[in-house]
Amino acid sequence: MRGLAILCAIVVGGILLWGSTDFPAWGRLDSPASVNLSDQYIEHAFEETHVPNLVSAILADYRNYDTMFETTVVFTACTAIFLILRLPLGPLARHRNTTHVQAARQRLPRDPILEMACRVLFPPTHLFGLYVLTHGHYSPGGGFQAGVILGASFILLAIGFDLRAILARFPEGLFVPMTALGVLLYIGTGVLCLVLGGNFLDYEALRVLAPGISKEMIRSHGILIVESGVTLTVGSVIFAIYANLVSRGNQMEGL
């Protein structure tokens, strides 16, 4: 098995290395990936959307169908984990109940230094997540990154205290609907554009709701709305994945 694996890896690697000799030199200005479309984005994205961070502008405006379905994939992954681990099924339910009775007996004592450190770190982490979301138009950032930071701030609390302590404040009844709410906010924006007479996710149609805003700025605000949806989904999905994985789905006892 090991010999076969080494052979497979060497054959695939050899073919790829041979293929890479035809690639353009690394960093060339006229490499096929960096002509046509990318030049159009770089030269016109700012004047069309007023978003200096071109990655945000492309992510949530020009390629917003792509991002919408990526968000849906994240939501679907969360649903899949919920169906695999959370729903009580025969052998898994028996297994996790017995192991968690054992785990509860061997619980570590609480550590005040660790708890205080997590308590102090949580608000700045949370605030930084919101900053990354709202300042994602002007600096590196955006919905996905902000969602991961927000999810990580909850995971930090869950590690520092225990899972039940954080679930008492941020219960499953809140974060599971939030995963769906983010997708709903994203697709709802698209449908609202459709209802107001534009194309799906064409933010310029939203000008009917805010007449004083130029058509570039309304695209900028539209990007913020859908990025907020992405943040809601990603943040709550990251925490939902963590909460279900560490407790084998019963959400009683964490790491």
Partner: peptide, 14 residues
């Protein structure tokens, strides 16, 4: 080129 960054940004989270 920002386009590969956009594609991979979503791919990492997925």
């Amino acid at each position: 080129n920002p386009v590969p960054h956009v594609l991979m940004l979503t791919a990492i989270v997925v």
